[in-house]
Design a protein around this nucleic acid. Sequence first.
DNA 1: ATGCCTTTTAACAAAAGA
Length: 256
Amino acid sequence: MKIATYNVNGVNGRLPVLLRWLSETQPDIACLQELKAPQEKFPEEAILEAGYEALWLGQKSWNGVAVLSKIGKPEVSRTSLPGDDSDDASRYLEVKVKDLIIACLYLPNGNPVPGPKFDYKMGWFERLDAHAEMLINSGKKVILAGDFNVMPTENDVYKPEKFKNDALFLPEIREAFHNLIGQGWTDAIRHLYPNETIYTFWDYFRNAYQRNAGMRIDHFLLSPEVLPQLKKAGVDTDVRGWEKSSDHGPVWIELK
DNA sequence: ATGCCTTTTAACAAAAGA
């Protein structure tokens, strides 16, 4: 079984690229972030025609997450993180498919630092941390997948020194990510490729993709019950080079 | 030092992204 996560940066503007990617790579489940579309503007028909049933949380202009499946319709588990009823950003969609719980998440960017956006990011991470602990303690097969907006180590960004004061790389956010992992989660890409330089995002400008000036910010975290099934993982880096592509590339895992 | 591009919204720039 192949599961993918892809920050599409606009699901309607990206539809031709999204459909081509689904058709060429055939993930069984795809988690999408940054739909940038209200609930009623999600391209459900085109996704259905591509063979996928979908659940999605839309929002006007920004955010938005979805889970696509061609192995049975996902069942909603949660549509937000617990802990802050005032947060109405569409950033978290947790579903059940088969025997898996899959959390599709879009962590806030957090820049500029310092400021309310970074405070919001740290607060969001705290709520994720608390909920993830509950999930991992459940003993179920759980996957946290999505755009975490965190480069976990210096090997995850092309020029670490340039990002010392960035919300994606500050010590406190890397520590938050490290603490989350410490609950018992496994970073699937790093588990299979401990030392390789692997990126999932390349900026639109300065020819970042052509220069491979990238960052690894989209992640798969696996609960201990899922880890033994991990067979392969990778990034569809070529998709980032397609015409009208997102600034992120799709990341995927294969489970036995 | 810098959002240098791209998307969305809306009707022009502005906001946001990372």
